[in-house]
């Protein structure tokens, strides 16, 4: 995935079954953000892989005051890339099992 300066990682082991998974997001490179990051640390949250949209979570983070509106794209893309990777890994695991 493209280096957005915002890192999103799994906050728990993915058992490949649960649709809801814990993720952790933090800013690795504040210079890549358009606005100054308030150094809040790592933000942990749960994400529903089947029913949620990464951009909605990014919007909620902005409304909660973690990021400025101008950085919604970078935050949304960072979550989206990680979610795509998790889904890809799950699909690959299923294919290998078959």
């Amino acid at each position: 995935a493209e280096n957005t300066g915002v890192r999103v990682e799994l906050a728990e082991e993915d058992d490949g079954k649960k649709s809801s998974i814990a993720l952790k997001l933090w800013v690795e490179d504040p210079k890549k953000l358009k606005t100054k990051y308030k150094d809040n640390g790592a933000i942990e949250f749960t994400f529903d892989l089947e029913n949620e949209v990464p951009e909605d979570v990014a919007q909620e983070m902005i409304e909660s005051g973690f990021f400025h509106e101008s950085d919604i794209k970078i935050v949304g893309k960072s979550i989206k890339d990680r979610v795509a990777l998790i889904k890809w890994k799950r699909e690959r695991t299923v294919l290998l099992q078959v």
Binding site: E44, F45, E60, M61, S64
Partner: peptide, 27 residues
């Protein structure tokens, strides 16, 4: 613990904790 919790109006829970040192170095 220094973890803080923020609950968004939509009901989502954000838990804020310090970024692990090892992860910052792992770039």
């Amino acid at each position: 613990s220094s973890a803080a919790q923020v609950v968004h109006s939509a009901g989502r829970r954000f838990i804020v904790s310090p970024v692990p040192e090892a992860r910052l170095k792992d770039q």
